[in-house]
Amino acid sequence: MKLLRLTVNGDPVELGVRDEETLLQVLRERLGLTGTKQGCDLGDCGSCTVLLDGEPVLSCLVLAATVEGRSVETIEGVAGADGLHPVQEAFDEVGAVQCGFCTPGMVLASKALLEKDPRPSRSEIRRALSGNLCRCTGYVKIVDAVERAGKAYPA
């Protein structure tokens, strides 16, 4: 058991975690943040993507006790009180969401990309999202959405 202090979606959180608990388990099972999905639990699918200090990582392969003091952003923290984030808005507008299971991970990976480079090429977008599997869309509209969302960022 470890006492863990971290920031989740901007809020300070303090809780006891078992040494072998993953960040994904803690988010979903302890904090009730079920927006982060589990599609394989082995690092193969990307549905569990969260931002750790702004970088997209797979929470199913992060030991919770190792993120002491760090900042985690999950899908629940992306939209503001005044509405969807530009990435979410673009996904919605162009039809990049079907079943929605890959969506949280896709949105977070896209957001991290655009924060570094708001004008990525289509192939750069594809590369950045290539660890996030989507079985529904064939990715076309997801790439469209990221391209469009980038325009909302200052170049």
Partner: peptide, 23 residues
Amino acid sequence: RPLRRLDGATKLRGDALFTDDLR
């Protein structure tokens, strides 16, 4: 007309509850 999904925003916010999300 190209129309947004009814459930798009819910899914995008991470609020959509899938079976494993139920407790």
